[in-house]
Design a protein around this nucleic acid. Structure first.
Length: 877
RNA sequence: GGGAGCUUAGCUCAGCUGGUUCAGAGCAUCUGCCUUACAAGCAGAGGGUCACUGGUUCGAACCCAGUAGCUCCCA
């Protein structure tokens, strides 16, 4: 069978993915093995795969595949999040295209559309994960709004309400006028923008022509002003204390109050107070018992209460009122300034602070164990620097606003009668009963359920418990076996939204952490460091990348540029490197595959090569294991990469590769062949977590395999643990080889011309074990030992010996002299630095003995080397 | 405004408790090779005042202080 020169992922990926599925290798059921569990950060059900998903799911898959190979019962639970705001926004947009407005629909009809849409498009992202090779147990796929999970959410709400942890209150919330819902503080992004600062003068009541000038960036809120505030110590306004002024246009008389909250330096030092539309003003309003006039409606347009511009958008009004005030002569001046404005993370609309009735979860008590157990390392955050951020947040945690003015989500189980009584319970029947207990007159048609739904995070915070039915069946097999899970892999941007809250819920409902380790990935940015976004169009389509470079190539590419915990600047060249690596592995396979064995004796060089690689492999595998244990994924990958490319392909295979004679490859001895196959299998295993497809393909090509003998379930190689001297010896051999090759290159000698090399050993014993290997890798005709210098030869000096390469051509003596002189100078400098150190009494007195010993050795080595170089120089005529 | 962190080769990053010539890796670059596994390759080479300034120390990329620039989080 002809094997193509380049690896083609297209013919292997789908094939093996379905094979794995068919043989249920991803499936996990509790048994007596040690569990290894990851719950996926559920992507939005409406979402499509982006680079951030690629990164964290690649990492999760690497972890889960390695655990599986280590014999653990690996379980990766997939699923999606109902993402109330995002999904509802998409459904609304879709309906709008069809000419249907949300307000024309009943709640039930809207939800019907939403579910239809979810069924049709939802979960595309999970299909995409398959392309990446994600080995999730798809039978366990969950959805945060499915019946069981929703029930858990409602039960938790009721439970916390009963515990007195949930309350309803009027609060200034971050209102998203586009999404028509409140969003949490964490979902508001503050961006610096260019604004105008308007200086507007208000007339002092009862005066002929006395004015007070305030500065504001939001003149449209003037209509809702109910006071003007100055600092009590501000001399400029002392005479106005206790007086009143007139709000322009609406001609309302409001008090001039004093408060030391005011910054005298900002603007004019006089602040207009609009309690309905600014959180600080609201607090001032509460303190000074000011009237609240809500002039901006939910949709961001002026309300009836504003009296002017009713029904016009707040930003239009800002321009209009500025113009109108200008015409009235009440604008003093306008300045350009930069200030921070809050934007909704979901809809990117400018947040409007707004007073409304919301449900809250008290955070002070419930969050305590979640803080403690991160600080004491019970739950580890990786990298550790996030512990600080976490601590800071948890110590200053605000109550969590858990209601959202949406339909898509779990509806709040609170019921009201017409007299203002409230009960919290699961069903309407229960509510009727309870309310009748309070108010015997009440009729069931007067009973209404709260219109709002719960924040999406109020369901996803239960995820590690609810996916194992830990609420429905607290003593179930699954929850007891898989919980607490092992690792969570997600981005630091949701440290508070999600991670912190899962930890809180874990302790509140299971009395245990939800996971032991949290691996926080970086944020994927483009080459210029910009966040990947649709608007910028700087995000490559992951599926296209997979088609171009293969899933294995993309996985490798992602991890190559993903240093632990740092943002990563993604560039397609990394995936190209990943693809090239696939190809390298493929060709190593082609080489080995092409060998014919024969009943020939194993040459000693092959035996040495095998011993060396065995030792090298063990050494590197230990390093790789250690890097995994520290979650240093990109470094584990790089170590694997070098083990395969450099040690296995560039050195080992070149050493044992049979020679070509008369256009035919000589056969290889059986012993070496067998050892090589075993090495190659081990290499494939170590590669498998990173590159599942190509390794599975080759696994089956290099040997006859039983149906279930797949690399995905092969055993992770063991290490012997012993360090072998041969690796050290070989480092010197490699140095010799590189030096000889270097001479060849520098002197422009064709690689086909065979060279002679002589070694003069100056210290230590002669080790000739590697001579044949040197001969082969440097294309030598002979490698011999001498006791004196060889004339008319290029030379180089290593620690223990001198090497001579006699030249057929005439030697450029001057050039050689110069080269040796340089080398001599360098070594003299080195010796000097060592001697200075040793002459330093304080160093000798303070440094560790072994360190001093080492310095002495360096000294004698350097002296020997200098002597050798000097002799060679003297020999050059 | 408050807090956290970062600055090492052209790029992306390692460098654990200060001590081997400790200044490293991958990519990129340069040079030579179409050597029957792979040009998506092979062989070799050149790149850095470890942001800056001072201090501690026998010894500093590493510890301390200050300066500059950048990033993130919170208000």
């Amino acid at each position: 069978m002809e094997i193509p020169k380049t690896y083609d992922p297209k013919i292997t990926e789908d094939k093996w993915y379905s094979y794995w599925l068919q043989h249920k290798f991803f499936k996990s059921v509790p048994d007596n093995r040690e569990p290894y569990t990851i719950v996926i950060p559920p992507p939005n059900v409406t979402g499509v795969l982006h680079m951030g998903h690629m990164l964290n799911n690649t990492i999760q898959d690497v972890l889960i595949r390695r655990a599986r190979m280590q014999g653990k019962n690996a379980c990766w639970v997939p699923g999606t999040d109902h993402a109330s705001i995002a999904t509802e926004a998409k459904v609304v947009a879709l309906l709008k295209e069809k000419g249907i407005s949300k307000t024309d629909l009943s709640r039930e009809d809207f939800l019907k559309h939403a579910w239809e849409w979810k069924e049709k498009y939802g979960g595309i992202i999970l299909k995409q994960l398959e392309k990446l090779g994600a080995s999730c147990d798809w039978d366990r796929t969950r959805f945060t709004m499915e019946e069981d999970l929703s029930e858990a959410v409602i039960d938790v709400f009721i439970d916390l309400y009963k515990k007195g942890q949930i309350y309803r209150g009027v609060r200034m919330v971050n209102w998203d006028p586009q999404g028509l819902t409140a969003v949490s503080d964490e979902e508001v992004q503050h961006k610096e923008v260019n604004s105008k600062l308007y200086y507007v003068k208000y007339k002092i009541e009862g005066s002929a022509d006395e004015w007070i000038t305030i500065a504001t960036t939001r003149p449209e809120t003037i209509l809702g002003d109910t006071a003007v505030c100055v600092h009590p110590d501000d001399e400029r306004y002392r005479h106005l204390h206790g007086k009143r002024c007139i709000i322009p246009m609406v001609n309302r008389s409001v008090p001039i109050i004093t408060d030391d909250y005011i910054t005298m330096e900002f603007g004019t030092g006089a602040l207009k107070v609009t309690p309905a539309h600014d959180i600080n003003d609201y607090n001032l309003g509460v303190k000074h018992k000011l009237e609240v006039i809500d002039t901006i409606a939910a949709d961001g347009k002026m309300s009836e209460a504003a009296k002017f511009y009713v029904g016009e958008d707040r930003f239009t009004v800002r321009k209009k009122i500025a113009k109108d005030l200008e015409e009235m002569g009440q604008i003093v001046k306008v300045e350009d300034i930069k200030n921070k404005v809050g934007y909704s993370e979901r809809t990117n609309a400018v947040i409007e602070p707004k007073l409304s009735m919301q449900w809250f979860l008290k955070m002070d008590k419930i969050s305590k164990p979640a803080l403690e157990n991160v600080l004491n390392g019970e739950v580890k955050l990786i990298p550790e620097k996030y512990v600080n951020t976490y601590k800071h947040w948890m110590e200053n945690v605000h109550d969590w606003c858990i209601s959202r003015q949406l339909w898509w989500g779990q509806r709040i189980p609170a019921w009201y009668d017409n007299k203002g009584n409230t009960v919290v319970c699961k069903t309407k029947e229960e509510a009727i009963q309870k309310l009748k207990g309070i108010n015997s007159e009440v009729k069931s048609e007067d009973i209404r359920q709260d219109e709002d739904v719960l924040d999406t995070w109020f369901s996803s915070w239960l995820w590690p418990i609810s996916v194992f039915d830990g609420f429905k069946n607290p003593e179930g097999k699954d929850i007891n076996y898989y919980y607490p899970t092992n690792d969570l892999v997600t981005g630091p941007d949701i440290l508070f939204f999600w991670i912190a809250r899962m930890i809180i819920a874990g302790y509140e409902y299971k009395g245990q952490k939800p996971f032991s380790n949290v691996y926080l990935t970086g944020i994927v940015r483009d080459k210029l460091g910009r966040k990947m976004s649709k608007q910028l169009g700087n995000s490559p389509d992951p599926i296209e990348l997979i088609e171009k470079y293969g899933a294995d190539g993309v996985r490798v590419g992602m991890l190559l540029c993903a240093p632990a915990g740092n943002d990563l600047l993604f560039d397609e060249s990394y995936t190209e490197q990943g693809r090239n690596f696939s190809n390298k592995i493929w060709n190593a396979f082609r080489l080995i595959n092409g060998w014919e064995t024969a009943d020939v004796k194993q040459v000693p060089a092959n035996k040495t090569a095998i011993q060396w690689f065995e030792a090298k492999f063990n050494e590197q595998l230990e390093i790789i294991n250690d890097l995994y244990s520290k979650y240093r994924m990109s470094e584990a990958l790089m170590a694997t990469y070098k083990l395969v490319w450099d040690d296995f392909c560039a050195w080992y295979l070149e050493m044992i590769k049979p020679e070509f004679v008369d256009g035919k490859s000589l056969p290889i001895d059986q012993e070496t062949y067998d050892a090589t196959i075993i090495f190659f299998e081990k290499i494939l295993k170590v590669l498998h977590p990173f590159m599942p497809f190509i390794t599975e393909e080759i696994w089956h090509l290099i040997g006859e395999r039983a149906e279930k003998d797949c690399i995905i379930v092969a055993e992770w190689p063991n290490t012997s643990g012993k360090t072998d001297e041969i690796v050290k010896h070989f480092d010197v051999v490699m140095e010799v080889i590189t030096n000889i090759r270097n001479i060849r290159k520098q002197k422009n000698i064709s690689p086909k011309e065979k060279l002679q090399v002589f070694e003069k050993v100056n210290q230590g014993e002669v080790i000739s074990t590697y001579d044949e290997i040197i001969i082969k890798l440097c294309n030598l005709s002979s490698f011999e030992y001498v006791t004196s210098n060889v004339d008319n030869a290029f030379s180089f000096v290593l620690k223990h010996a001198e090497f001579f390469v006699p030249l057929s051509q005439n030697m450029d003596v001057e050039a050689e002299k110069e080269r040796l002189s340089k080398d001599l100078e360098y070594n003299k400098g080195f010796l000097k630095s060592v001697e200075i150190k040793l002459a330093n009494e304080k160093f000798v007195a303070n440094a560790k003995p072994e360190l001093i010993e080492n310095e002495r050795k360096k000294q004698s080595d350097a002296m020997a080397k200098i002597k050798a170089i000097e002799e060679q120089l003297a020999g050059l005529k």
